[in-house]
Nucleic acid binder design. Structure first.
Length: 472
DNA sequence: TGAAATGTTGGGGCG
DNA sequence: ACGCCCCAACATTTC
């Protein structure tokens, strides 16, 4: 059998990896590559913490593959345009029979892959690509009239009907025939590539490796998933799985996680609530595939592009840095800075504050999130922002605006979360902490940057200016 | 995966 | 005792 090549992208693991599994089926000689594209990452606003996470996971992956007699080779080009040529060179130098990779669905990645497949055709290298990121393949979830779902609830009902409780998982491959390939001039050591520097704190908070991801799933499914319905909304409890970075970079597959949610626990309301979150991820990915124009920063509802979004650099920065004068908002934004991650409910609260109370363009918030999030994913992030800004399909009605002080009292009643991330308010009483009075506000804490009532009215007015039909 | 404004009701204070 | 008013408390509607 011929030399097989696995191209790793957002699937940095050896178990349940369709591309790796198929490449290894016959105990072929197998080589693996990873191609860093720093300029492209910057274009996509990929966060430093996320790129560092890739770096650390690639080191793990290299070791795991080495045990299977598969060497992972590293390359770096600036952008996707240069990838096809590089792959062509590699395939010819190494006499590759077949290239294997798992699909990525955003527009630029699909275009890149089409170019790569075209080049493979020219040089007579076979290629196979596989669905990996989705529980259900693109185009497989359709309404009775064979159209994509635009609303979550019917989508999720249909998806659940099509989903088994135990999905097939590809086993990790067995040891392959060793192969020595000529070193290419373009090849690099992992450490020689351009990697960002991030704090040890963040590294410790998000340990790398497939084994760690397994441990996280097991730990979550052992108990927290059973309380998820209640605890998921309380940021101070840490009741969420915190699996998103691992899912986003493919350190673990969504199929593995789906199976675990059934396997480890008695199905109850909480388990279903959590599975629904996996289906929201699924929903947004399907939306992006069926409506790729949303990835070009177009609102799903074109009319909402007529909103006269405000641009205020100073206010945007106050929001970004957690200096808005609203304790819960500031705690959440500081969590994002400190951890590269934010609790799900708080993502909604801060997104709505920016897009509604401040009426600042949701795309600026979307961009900031991508630049900061270790789990940044185009589909989920765009979907979430358009939900909050009421510009998306099945988004929140424009008049349903979260009050950040009310949300604070409801979901952080003792101010535990606020006290942790906004230490200058830690001494305030449970009553005062959600919105300190002028008298009790410390010198080093800003006044509220907007009158909530005025901001709310301004947002309602802006949306009402659009046509008043029910499509908004 | 709201919040504010408005409407309704019923118990208690009080002349 | 009675009616009136006040205003929580809850319900409905509006955005």
């Amino acid at each position: 059998m011929g030399h097989q090549l696995v191209w790793f992208r957002n699937d940095l693991r050896v178990s349940d990896n369709p591309a790796l599994y198929h490449a290894c089926q016959q105990q072929n000689p197998v080589s693996a590559i990873y191609i860093a594209t720093p300029e492209q990452w910057r274009d996509h606003d990929d966060a430093d913490v996320k790129i560092d996470f890739w770096h650390r996971n690639l080191a793990c992956l290299k070791n795991s593959l080495a045990e299977l007699n598969i060497e992972l080779h590293f390359f770096q080009v600036n952008n996707y345009q240069q990838v096809p040529n590089l792959i062509s060179t590699i395939c010819q130098q190494w006499d590759i029979e077949r290239l294997h990779f798992n699909d990525e669905y955003p527009v630029n990645e699909r275009f890149r892959d089409q170019q790569v497949m075209a080049v493979c055709g020219q040089i007579s290298v076979e290629y196979q690509h596989y669905n990996d990121q989705l529980l259900l393949p693109p185009g497989s979830v359709r309404t009775k009239s064979d159209t994509p779902f635009k609303v979550f609830t019917p989508f999720s009902k249909q998806a659940k009907q099509q989903l088994e409780q135990s999905l097939y998982l590809y086993p990790a491959p067995i040891k392959q025939t060793a192969i020595n390939v000529t070193t290419l001039t373009q090849a690099s050591q992992l450490t020689e590539l351009t990697w960002p520097i991030v704090s040890d704190d963040i590294k410790a908070f998000w340990p790398e490796g497939e084994q760690h991801a397994f441990a996280r799933v097991a730990k979550f499914c052992r108990q927290p998933i059973r309380d998820y319905k209640q605890s998921r909304d309380i940021p101070s409890l840490g009741g969420t799985s915190r699996l998103s970075p691992y899912l986003a970079s493919g350190i673990i597959s969504v199929r593995q996680v789906w199976n675990a949610s059934w396997q480890y626990c008695e199905p109850n309301d909480s388990v279903q609530t959590w599975q629904n979150e996996l289906l929201w991820r699924e929903f947004y990915k399907h939306i992006l595939i069926d409506y790729p124009e949303v990835s070009r920063h177009k609102p799903w509802k074109p009319l909402t592009d007529n909103i006269d979004w405000r641009y205020d650099e100073q206010q945007l920065q106050a929001w970004q840095q957690g200096q808005t004068g609203f304790p819960l908002i500031d705690a959440a934004m500081r969590q994002l800075l400190a951890r590269g991650w934010m609790h799900n409910r708080l993502r909604m609260v801060v997104a709505m504050f920016l897009s509604k109370h401040l009426l600042i363009d949701w795309r600026l918030g979307e961009c900031w999130f991508m630049q900061q999030l270790i789990d940044g994913d185009l589909a989920a992030n765009n979907g979430g922002w358009q939900w909050s800004a009421s510009t998306g399909t099945d988004s929140v009605p424009y008049f349903r605006i979260f009050n950040p002080v009310t949300q604070s009292k409801r979901f952080d009643p003792q101010g535990t979360f606020i006290r942790h991330y906004v230490p200058e308010l830690a001494h305030l009483s449970d009553k005062e902490i959600h919105m300190p009075s002028d008298a009790n506000r410390p010198q080093n804490y800003p006044k509220p940057m907007v009158d909530l009532s005025d901001g709310r009215q301004r947002a309602l007015a802006a949306f009402k200016l659009l046509a008043t039909d029910s499509t908004i």
